[in-house]
């Protein structure tokens, strides 16, 4: 019997002397490598142009701010990989902060204020998931609607006023341990948990499957809707933790603390290689994306660039990231 698929086995191009060159070229084109290079150039530029950029204080500040954004971005990434989208993360973080802060101000024990805050995030994720899987509302619409509802609720509850929190133990995220800002420990924990779950467990494998080809997942006897419901809840869990970190860091219950956060997160995560079409994305890419976006913001402030420019640059970066994702396989013609 002839060997089945003989002509389709090893790529014939292996014999091509340029094979290796091309492989290296393709590797260089990998999104994360490009992003890492861009980050290196950004850091170099800022170091050369700013007296106080490459100082341990400033770098730790960048890391501290990256941590909050990263934790919520992990949730955003997981949801994107599973073929979903959650635009309500910024306002979700704000509500989580309002819940935690107000419970604390009302005298609820610290741990419970934080736990109930995190659970608020999970609940928001669950409602998003139910709207999307049961009522069959498009994720963009469902979570955009959720964004508005949470935003309005936040202003109603706080009557539009910010409230300062005096208790230092509430502001644990401002502290440092062994010289490392506390939020960085959250960053590491979130990264490790997500990396392991995504790459070594059946749930992670199925997340890629459900996002990559939901129809095929159904035919493989997966319960796609139940899986996605759980996925939004877990996304909400990360929103909850990030929300608690944020309110603790700011020491302020503020109804505008979630504003525009989803844009920065989306830019970071899309830069990191995730895709709106699902089934694609990585924790490492998201980490790079978050550090890049935070460093950029930090640098722009120090360069005394008007903040409007930050928005514009953010928009351009978002377009670049998505265009890179959509690039035709055979290159542009």
């Amino acid at each position: 019997m002839t060997a089945v698929g003989a002509q389709a086995g090893r790529p014939a191009s292996r014999n091509n002397p340029y094979w290796l060159v091309r492989q290296v070229g393709r590797g260089l084109l990998a999104q994360n490598v490009l992003l890492a290079l861009a980050l290196v150039f950004l850091v170099l530029y800022l170091t050369l142009n700013l007296e106080f950029f490459f100082t341990s204080t400033n770098l730790l500040t960048i890391l501290r701010y990256s941590s909050v954004t990263f934790v919520v971005s992990v949730g955003f990434t997981l949801v994107l990989i599973g073929g979903g989208l959650d635009l309500s993360i910024g306002q979700g973080m704000m509500i989580v902060g309002v819940v935690s802060g107000n419970l604390h101000l009302a005298g609820v024990p610290l741990a419970w204020s934080f736990i109930l805050g995190v659970l608020t995030g999970v609940a928001i994720g669950l409602v998003n998931g139910l709207l999307i899987t049961k009522l069959r509302i498009n994720p963009l619409i469902a979570t955009l609607a959720m964004l508005f509802v949470l935003w309005g609720t936040g202003f109603l509850v706080t009557k539009g006023r910010s409230q300062r929190i005096r208790d230092d133990s509430f502001k644990f995220a401002r502290q440092s341990l062994w010289g490392i800002p506390v939020p960085v420990f959250f960053l590491v924990a979130a990264a490790v948990v997500a990396l392991v779950a995504l790459n070594t467990t059946k749930a992670g494998r199925h997340l890629f499957a459900v996002g990559g080809n939901p129809e095929a997942a159904r035919q493989a006897a997966m319960n796609v809707d139940r899986f996605r419901l759980g996925m939004y809840a877990i996304g909400g869990l990360f929103t909850g933790v990030a929300g608690v970190m944020l309110v603790s860091q700011q020491g302020l219950v503020a109804p505008n603390s979630g504003m525009n956060r989803e844009f920065w997160v989306a830019t970071a995560v899309f830069l990191g290689g995730a895709s709106l079409s699902g089934g694609k994305g990585s924790i490492l890419g998201t980490l790079l994306g978050v550090v890049f976006v935070t460093t950029l913001a930090n640098g722009l402030v120090q360069l005394a660039v008007v903040p409007e420019w930050a928005l514009i640059i953010n928009g351009v970066a978002l377009i670049l990231a998505v265009a890179f994702d959509q690039r035709p396989k055979g290159g542009y013609r």
């Binding site: 890629f208 499957a209 990559g212 095929a216």
Partner: peptide, 21 residues
């Protein structure tokens, strides 16, 4: 339409839903 997962490798496709864990 074959119902394959383009984003997963060959082994993952063969074992999908019946993974060894």
């Amino acid at each position: 339409d074959l119902a394959l997962f383009d984003n997963l490798d060959v082994a993952a496709n063969i074992f999908i839903g019946r993974e060894h864990t």
